[in-house]
């Protein structure tokens, strides 16, 4: 029953060339990052990675000792220094430029990049029909409005998923000619937790890289679905695609900046952007506010998604469609 409608929505996203733009952006960004990794690999060939990492840890500690750092930034440094030290202690190179680690790293980067891309086609999906006047035809066919919105939401989920998968595939494909492509079983450590001024190692576990990568992508996928649901709400509320996309991008970027520059404003932990980089938090980056456990972040995103979807349906199925 919903399949033909989803087919229609898919066709529209593809014909609007939205998804092609998303893929092109991913391609360009990943190509640039691969290039920088490749350069690092060539420079590092004769170097001692232990010395490099030790230098980095020492730098972080110096920065923290000098003080006057933004609290949220300092927490990040502290956590990263703790994580690197742990790898040093276990004699494992943490950030080797390899294909698999590059793919794994993209999961973290996608915490801020992919929501922007999903917003690009998500915030458009209802408002464009409104702006182009096609809603008058779409809503006068023998299909109830809730079915149309459901088809749009499912199509968005599908494309958000596809964006993440394409990102991972492009990352691997583009890096494999330049970076070593093996190492999916390399050991990685997860479960670093910042408690007070030190990094707690109690819950650190060792995982093979492929498993760690799956978990990071799974978390980021969940966050992207929440972004898609919020984008749908804005798309329903705004009549112009530009306004909807603009508001979505502003709340993503503005919200992130807000949570980073004002860690004292603790109510900020209830903003959905605070919880978006799930893969970062899973890797060991501390969330910007205290009391944001993984469970809290996942529930927060879920709550935002459910509330946004409920409002979307309530408004879309009831409103009068004027010109």
């Amino acid at each position: 029953m919903l399949i033909p409608l989803i087919q229609n929505e898919t066709l529209k996203i593809i014909r609007r060339k939205r998804f092609a733009v998303v893929i092109a952006i991913l391609f360009v960004i990943l190509a640039l990052v691969t290039y920088s990794q490749y350069r690092r690999l060539r420079e590092q060939q004769n170097r001692n990675w232990r010395a490099e990492i030790q230098q980095r840890v020492a730098n972080f500690q110096n920065m923290m000792r000098r003080g006057r750092l933004n609290e949220s930034y300092a927490r990040g440094l502290r956590a990263e220094a703790g994580r690197l030290q742990f790898y040093l202690d276990h004699d494992i190179e943490p950030d080797k430029p390899t294909g698999p680690l590059f793919v794994r790293g993209f999961a973290n980067a996608s915490g801020w990049l992919l929501p922007l891309l999903v917003a690009m086609f998500g915030a458009d999906i209802v408002s464009a029909e409104n702006a182009e006047g096609t809603d008058k035809l779409l809503l006068t066919r023998p299909v109830r409005r809730w079915k149309i919105l459901t088809a749009k939401l499912l199509t968005l989920f599908m494309f958000a998923t596809l964006t993440l998968i394409c990102g991972a595939v492009i990352a691997y494909a583009i890096s494999s000619p330049f970076l070593p492509s093996g190492g999916w079983n390399a050991p990685t450590f997860v479960g670093f937790q910042l408690s007070g001024n030190s990094v707690s190692l109690d819950s650190v576990r060792q995982l093979p890289l492929w498993k760690d990568t799956m978990i990071a992508y799974g978390l980021q996928w969940y966050a992207l679905l929440a972004v898609a649901a919020i984008a749908l709400l804005l798309s329903v509320l705004f009549k112009s695609s530009a306004a909807a996309i603009g508001t979505m991008l502003a709340s993503l970027i503005g919200g992130t900046i807000l949570t980073r520059i004002s860690p004292d404003w603790t109510a900020g932990k209830y903003l959905f952007v605070s919880a978006l980089p799930l893969a970062d938090y899973y890797t060991g980056q501390p969330p910007p506010y205290d009391g944001m456990s993984m469970l809290f972040c996942i529930s927060l995103l879920g709550a935002w998604a459910i509330v946004a979807t409920t409002i979307s349906y309530a408004v879309f199925t009831r409103r009068d469609v004027f010109g």
Partner: peptide, 21 residues
């Protein structure tokens, strides 16, 4: 709604169709 609309074909205001298709 669905039974009623199955009996109708309409153009409301301008014939706005998907221009990119």
């Amino acid at each position: 709604f669905e039974d009623a609309m199955r009996c109708v074909g309409c153009i409301v205001e301008n014939p706005d169709l998907y221009r990119f298709m």
